[in-house]
Protein backbone atom coordinates (compact mmCIF):
# COMPACT_ATOMS: atom_id res chain seq x y z
CA UNK A 1 0.00 0.00 0.00
CA UNK A 2 2.53 2.59 1.11
CA UNK A 3 4.96 1.72 -1.68
CA UNK A 4 2.42 2.80 -4.20
CA UNK A 5 1.62 5.96 -2.24
CA UNK A 6 5.31 6.81 -2.09
CA UNK A 7 5.65 6.30 -5.83
CA UNK A 8 2.70 8.60 -6.36
CA UNK A 9 4.19 11.25 -4.03
CA UNK A 10 7.44 11.09 -6.02
CA UNK A 11 5.48 12.23 -9.07
CA UNK A 12 5.13 15.58 -7.27
CA UNK A 13 1.61 16.24 -8.59
CA UNK A 14 1.16 19.83 -7.43
CA UNK A 15 -1.81 21.66 -8.93
CA UNK A 16 -1.47 22.06 -12.67
CA UNK A 17 1.48 19.65 -12.82
CA UNK A 18 -0.27 16.32 -12.34
CA UNK A 19 0.80 14.84 -15.68
CA UNK A 20 3.40 12.43 -14.31
CA UNK A 21 1.01 11.09 -11.69
CA UNK A 22 -1.77 10.66 -14.24
CA UNK A 23 0.56 8.65 -16.48
CA UNK A 24 1.44 6.54 -13.43
CA UNK A 25 -2.25 6.00 -12.65
CA UNK A 26 -2.90 5.01 -16.27
CA UNK A 27 -0.14 2.41 -16.01
CA UNK A 28 -1.81 0.91 -12.93
CA UNK A 29 -5.26 0.57 -14.44
CA UNK A 30 -6.12 -2.95 -15.48
CA UNK A 31 -9.31 -2.06 -17.27
CA UNK A 32 -11.15 0.81 -18.85
CA UNK A 33 -10.51 3.14 -21.75
CA UNK A 34 -8.41 6.08 -20.61
CA UNK A 35 -7.42 9.38 -22.18
CA UNK A 36 -6.13 12.78 -21.11
CA UNK A 37 -8.79 15.44 -21.71
CA UNK A 38 -8.50 19.12 -22.55
CA UNK A 39 -8.12 20.18 -18.91
CA UNK A 40 -5.36 17.61 -18.39
CA UNK A 41 -7.53 15.15 -16.41
CA UNK A 42 -7.36 11.40 -16.91
CA UNK A 43 -10.82 10.27 -18.00
CA UNK A 44 -11.55 6.54 -17.77
CA UNK A 45 -14.62 4.64 -18.89
CA UNK A 46 -15.19 1.08 -17.76
CA UNK A 47 -17.62 -0.46 -20.19
CA UNK A 48 -20.63 -2.25 -18.74
CA UNK A 49 -22.88 -4.80 -20.33
CA UNK A 50 -24.99 -1.91 -21.55
CA UNK A 51 -25.25 1.86 -21.57
CA UNK A 52 -27.61 3.43 -19.04
CA UNK A 53 -30.31 5.52 -20.71
CA UNK A 54 -30.03 8.13 -18.00
CA UNK A 55 -26.29 8.54 -18.48
CA UNK A 56 -23.33 7.07 -16.65
CA UNK A 57 -22.37 7.23 -13.03
CA UNK A 58 -19.07 9.10 -12.87
CA UNK A 59 -16.70 9.19 -9.92
CA UNK A 60 -14.23 12.07 -9.79
CA UNK A 61 -11.21 12.36 -7.56
CA UNK A 62 -8.77 15.26 -7.36
CA UNK A 63 -5.16 14.16 -7.78
CA UNK A 64 -3.20 17.29 -6.92
CA UNK A 65 -1.28 17.78 -3.71
CA UNK A 66 -0.29 21.09 -2.12
CA UNK A 67 2.97 22.46 -3.44
CA UNK A 68 4.91 25.48 -4.53
CA UNK A 69 6.05 27.23 -7.69
CA UNK A 70 9.42 28.94 -7.69
CA UNK A 71 8.81 32.56 -8.63
CA UNK A 72 12.32 33.98 -8.63
CA UNK A 73 15.85 32.94 -7.84
CA UNK A 74 18.29 35.42 -6.32
CA UNK A 75 21.95 35.58 -7.27
CA UNK A 76 22.93 34.06 -3.92
CA UNK A 77 20.73 31.02 -4.49
CA UNK A 78 17.59 31.93 -2.58
CA UNK A 79 14.53 30.49 -4.27
CA UNK A 80 11.36 32.49 -3.65
CA UNK A 81 8.08 30.76 -4.23
CA UNK A 82 4.31 30.90 -4.20
CA UNK A 83 2.17 28.15 -2.64
CA UNK A 84 -0.53 26.51 -4.76
CA UNK A 85 -2.81 26.21 -1.76
CA UNK A 86 -4.32 28.69 0.68
CA UNK A 87 -2.09 29.37 3.68
CA UNK A 88 -3.62 31.28 6.54
CA UNK A 89 -0.47 31.68 8.59
CA UNK A 90 2.62 31.95 6.43
CA UNK A 91 4.94 31.62 9.41
CA UNK A 92 3.90 27.95 9.65
CA UNK A 93 5.74 27.24 6.41
CA UNK A 94 9.06 28.29 7.92
CA UNK A 95 11.17 25.27 8.84
CA UNK A 96 9.16 22.82 6.72
CA UNK A 97 11.05 20.46 4.44
CA UNK A 98 10.32 20.39 0.73
CA UNK A 99 11.59 18.09 -1.99
CA UNK A 100 12.65 18.99 -5.48
CA UNK A 101 14.06 16.41 -7.86
CA UNK A 102 14.81 14.02 -5.02
CA UNK A 103 16.72 16.62 -2.97
CA UNK A 104 15.47 17.99 0.32
CA UNK A 105 15.46 21.69 1.13
CA UNK A 106 14.30 23.70 4.15
CA UNK A 107 11.99 26.66 3.91
CA UNK A 108 13.62 29.57 5.73
CA UNK A 109 12.22 32.90 6.78
CA UNK A 110 13.75 36.36 6.83
CA UNK A 111 10.87 37.78 8.89
CA UNK A 112 11.98 39.44 12.12
CA UNK A 113 8.54 39.07 13.60
CA UNK A 114 6.97 35.64 12.82
CA UNK A 115 3.46 37.06 13.13
CA UNK A 116 4.17 39.49 10.33
CA UNK A 117 5.61 36.95 7.92
CA UNK A 118 4.99 37.85 4.29
CA UNK A 119 5.42 35.53 1.36
CA UNK A 120 8.46 37.50 0.25
CA UNK A 121 10.17 36.72 3.58
CA UNK A 122 10.11 33.01 2.83
CA UNK A 123 12.60 31.25 0.62
CA UNK A 124 14.26 27.94 -0.02
CA UNK A 125 18.01 28.14 0.34
CA UNK A 126 19.29 26.10 -2.57
CA UNK A 127 22.79 26.81 -1.30
CA UNK A 128 24.13 27.35 -4.79
CA UNK A 129 24.77 30.77 -6.29
CA UNK A 130 22.25 31.21 -9.09
CA UNK A 131 20.56 27.91 -8.12
CA UNK A 132 20.50 26.85 -11.74
CA UNK A 133 18.27 23.83 -11.11
CA UNK A 134 15.48 26.22 -10.23
CA UNK A 135 13.81 28.66 -12.59
CA UNK A 136 10.55 30.60 -12.33
CA UNK A 137 7.89 27.96 -12.83
CA UNK A 138 9.79 25.07 -11.21
CA UNK A 139 7.49 23.22 -8.82
CA UNK A 140 8.10 21.27 -5.64
CA UNK A 141 6.15 19.89 -2.70
CA UNK A 142 6.47 18.92 0.95
CA UNK A 143 8.61 15.94 1.87
CA UNK A 144 6.19 13.12 2.39
CA UNK A 145 7.07 10.28 4.72
CA UNK A 146 4.09 7.99 4.34
CA UNK A 147 3.78 5.10 6.79
CA UNK A 148 1.29 2.36 7.57
CA UNK A 149 0.77 1.48 11.24
CA UNK A 150 -2.07 0.02 13.31
CA UNK A 151 -4.62 0.28 10.53
CA UNK A 152 -3.71 3.89 9.86
CA UNK A 153 -1.85 5.53 7.04
CA UNK A 154 0.03 8.62 8.09
CA UNK A 155 2.16 11.26 6.42
CA UNK A 156 1.59 14.51 4.63
CA UNK A 157 -0.59 14.18 1.51
CA UNK A 158 -1.46 10.58 2.42
CA UNK A 159 -5.18 11.30 2.35
CA UNK A 160 -5.31 12.50 -1.26
CA UNK A 161 -2.95 9.82 -2.50
CA UNK A 162 -4.64 6.95 -0.67
CA UNK A 163 -7.97 8.18 -2.00
CA UNK A 164 -6.54 8.05 -5.53
CA UNK A 165 -5.24 4.54 -4.88
CA UNK A 166 -8.66 3.47 -3.61
CA UNK A 167 -10.27 4.67 -6.82
CA UNK A 168 -7.65 2.77 -8.87
CA UNK A 169 -8.51 -0.35 -6.84
CA UNK A 170 -12.21 0.22 -7.48
CA UNK A 171 -11.67 0.55 -11.23
CA UNK A 172 -9.67 -2.66 -11.28
CA UNK A 173 -12.28 -4.66 -9.39
CA UNK A 174 -15.34 -3.25 -11.12
CA UNK A 175 -17.64 -5.44 -13.22
CA UNK A 176 -20.33 -2.87 -13.96
CA UNK A 177 -23.75 -3.50 -15.37
CA UNK A 178 -23.62 -0.10 -17.07
CA UNK A 179 -20.81 2.08 -18.39
CA UNK A 180 -19.10 3.77 -15.44
CA UNK A 181 -16.81 6.79 -15.63
CA UNK A 182 -13.86 7.82 -13.50
CA UNK A 183 -12.23 11.22 -13.66
CA UNK A 184 -8.81 11.57 -12.07
CA UNK A 185 -8.98 15.33 -12.04
CA UNK A 186 -6.46 18.15 -11.90
CA UNK A 187 -6.41 21.39 -9.95
CA UNK A 188 -8.82 20.29 -7.24
CA UNK A 189 -7.07 22.67 -4.86
CA UNK A 190 -7.55 25.51 -7.35
CA UNK A 191 -11.32 25.58 -6.93
CA UNK A 192 -11.88 22.27 -8.71
CA UNK A 193 -10.98 23.74 -12.09
CA UNK A 194 -10.32 20.33 -13.62
CA UNK A 195 -13.98 19.44 -13.13
CA UNK A 196 -14.89 21.94 -15.85
CA UNK A 197 -14.50 19.12 -18.39
CA UNK A 198 -16.69 16.56 -16.59
CA UNK A 199 -19.72 17.11 -18.79
CA UNK A 200 -17.59 16.99 -21.94
CA UNK A 201 -15.77 13.76 -21.09
CA UNK A 202 -18.84 11.74 -20.13
CA UNK A 203 -22.53 11.42 -20.73
CA UNK A 204 -23.08 12.12 -17.04
CA UNK A 205 -26.14 10.70 -15.34
CA UNK A 206 -24.83 11.43 -11.87
CA UNK A 207 -21.42 12.47 -10.63
CA UNK A 208 -19.95 11.55 -7.29
CA UNK A 209 -17.04 13.76 -6.28
CA UNK A 210 -14.71 11.97 -3.89
CA UNK A 211 -12.42 13.93 -1.63
CA UNK A 212 -10.53 13.64 1.60
CA UNK A 213 -11.26 16.17 4.26
CA UNK A 214 -10.89 16.97 7.92
CA UNK A 215 -14.23 15.74 9.19
CA UNK A 216 -15.09 14.12 12.51
CA UNK A 217 -16.69 10.99 11.14
CA UNK A 218 -15.65 7.34 11.13
CA UNK A 219 -16.87 6.29 7.71
CA UNK A 220 -17.11 7.69 4.20
CA UNK A 221 -19.51 10.57 4.52
CA UNK A 222 -22.22 11.56 2.07
CA UNK A 223 -22.59 15.33 2.09
CA UNK A 224 -26.17 16.59 1.98
CA UNK A 225 -24.84 20.14 1.81
CA UNK A 226 -21.47 21.26 0.58
CA UNK A 227 -19.85 24.55 -0.33
CA UNK A 228 -22.07 26.03 -3.08
CA UNK A 229 -23.71 22.67 -3.65
CA UNK A 230 -26.90 21.10 -2.42
CA UNK A 231 -27.17 17.75 -4.19
CA UNK A 232 -30.51 16.53 -5.52
CA UNK A 233 -32.29 14.59 -2.78
CA UNK A 234 -32.72 11.65 -5.16
CA UNK A 235 -28.96 11.37 -5.44
CA UNK A 236 -28.53 11.36 -1.65
CA UNK A 237 -31.12 8.59 -1.48
CA UNK A 238 -29.45 6.63 -4.28
CA UNK A 239 -26.09 6.66 -2.51
CA UNK A 240 -27.35 5.88 0.97
CA UNK A 241 -29.66 3.12 -0.25
CA UNK A 242 -26.89 1.55 -2.33
CA UNK A 243 -24.55 1.62 0.65
CA UNK A 244 -27.22 0.26 3.00
CA UNK A 245 -28.13 -2.57 0.64
CA UNK A 246 -24.47 -3.58 0.25
CA UNK A 247 -23.87 -3.31 4.01
CA UNK A 248 -21.25 -0.59 3.60
CA UNK A 249 -20.96 1.65 6.67
CA UNK A 250 -21.36 5.34 5.88
CA UNK A 251 -22.12 8.65 7.55
CA UNK A 252 -24.16 11.62 6.42
CA UNK A 253 -23.22 15.20 7.09
CA UNK A 254 -23.72 18.74 5.91
CA UNK A 255 -20.69 21.00 5.97
CA UNK A 256 -20.05 24.32 4.40
CA UNK A 257 -16.92 26.26 3.74
CA UNK A 258 -14.57 27.28 1.02
CA UNK A 259 -12.81 23.96 0.89
CA UNK A 260 -14.57 22.55 -2.08
CA UNK A 261 -16.18 24.43 -4.89
CA UNK A 262 -18.07 22.01 -7.06
CA UNK A 263 -19.79 24.58 -9.25
CA UNK A 264 -17.49 23.64 -12.15
CA UNK A 265 -18.76 20.06 -11.94
CA UNK A 266 -22.37 21.19 -11.80
CA UNK A 267 -22.09 23.65 -14.68
CA UNK A 268 -19.88 21.60 -17.00
CA UNK A 269 -21.41 20.76 -20.39
CA UNK A 270 -25.19 20.82 -20.20
CA UNK A 271 -25.21 20.75 -16.38
CA UNK A 272 -24.85 17.75 -14.08
CA UNK A 273 -26.34 16.15 -11.04
CA UNK A 274 -23.52 16.14 -8.48
CA UNK A 275 -22.93 14.93 -4.94
CA UNK A 276 -19.79 14.64 -2.87
CA UNK A 277 -18.53 11.92 -0.57
CA UNK A 278 -15.79 12.64 1.91
CA UNK A 279 -13.08 10.32 3.15
CA UNK A 280 -12.51 11.30 6.81
CA UNK A 281 -8.95 12.47 7.39
CA UNK A 282 -7.19 14.17 10.24
CA UNK A 283 -4.22 16.49 10.54
CA UNK A 284 -4.45 17.41 6.86
CA UNK A 285 -1.29 19.17 5.63
CA UNK A 286 0.72 18.30 8.71
CA UNK A 287 3.22 15.48 9.15
CA UNK A 288 0.61 13.67 11.25
CA UNK A 289 -2.00 13.66 8.47
CA UNK A 290 -3.79 10.33 8.59
CA UNK A 291 -6.61 8.19 7.23
CA UNK A 292 -7.78 4.78 8.36
CA UNK A 293 -7.49 1.72 6.18
CA UNK A 294 -11.00 0.68 7.16
CA UNK A 295 -12.52 3.90 5.79
CA UNK A 296 -10.58 3.43 2.55
CA UNK A 297 -11.98 -0.09 2.19
CA UNK A 298 -15.46 1.21 2.93
CA UNK A 299 -15.08 3.89 0.32
CA UNK A 300 -13.98 1.37 -2.31
CA UNK A 301 -17.01 -0.78 -1.42
CA UNK A 302 -19.26 2.26 -1.61
CA UNK A 303 -17.97 3.01 -5.14
CA UNK A 304 -18.64 -0.58 -6.17
CA UNK A 305 -22.11 -0.52 -4.59
CA UNK A 306 -23.13 2.74 -6.25
CA UNK A 307 -21.83 1.71 -9.65
CA UNK A 308 -23.96 -1.43 -9.40
CA UNK A 309 -27.17 0.60 -9.12
Amino acid sequence: MTDMLKEMAECCPVSGREGRLLRYIKSRLEKGEAYIDGMGNLAVTVKGREKHEGGSTVFAVGCDIPGFFATSVSEDGKVYFSPTFPVEDLSELSGRTVVYSGKEYKILSAAKDAEKTRLTDLYVDAGVPGASEFRPGTWFSFRSDIKEEDGKITGICCSVLSLVKTVIDAVNSLEPEYDTGFLFSVMKIQGGRGLASLGYDFDVGRAVILRASEIKKDHPTVLVKDCRLIPPSGLVRLLTEAAGKAGVPYDVSGITGRESDLSNAVLSGRGNSVISVVLPASGVLTDSESVTESSLRELRDLILAVSAV
Binding site: D37, G38, M39, G40, N41, F69, T71, S72, S82, R135, P136, G137, R193, A196, S197, G199, Y200, D201, N264, S268, G269
Partner: peptide, 21 residues
Amino acid sequence: PKKFVSGGNDAKYIHQANGGT
Protein backbone atom coordinates in the same frame (compact mmCIF):
# COMPACT_ATOMS: atom_id res chain seq x y z
CA PRO B 1 8.83 35.05 -16.98
CA LYS B 2 6.32 36.67 -14.65
CA LYS B 3 8.00 36.32 -11.28
CA PHE B 4 5.18 36.65 -8.83
CA VAL B 5 1.83 34.89 -8.69
CA SER B 6 -0.68 37.72 -8.86
CA GLY B 7 -3.67 38.96 -10.81
CA GLY B 8 -5.73 37.06 -13.30
CA ASN B 9 -7.04 37.50 -16.81
CA ASP B 10 -9.31 36.05 -19.46
CA ALA B 11 -7.25 32.84 -19.58
CA LYS B 12 -9.07 31.80 -16.40
CA TYR B 13 -12.27 31.35 -18.40
CA ILE B 14 -10.74 30.32 -21.70
CA HIS B 15 -8.74 27.42 -20.28
CA GLN B 16 -11.89 25.93 -18.75
CA ALA B 17 -14.03 26.39 -21.86
CA ASN B 18 -15.14 23.47 -24.05
CA GLY B 19 -13.90 20.91 -21.57
CA GLY B 20 -10.43 22.46 -21.51
CA THR B 21 -8.53 24.71 -23.87
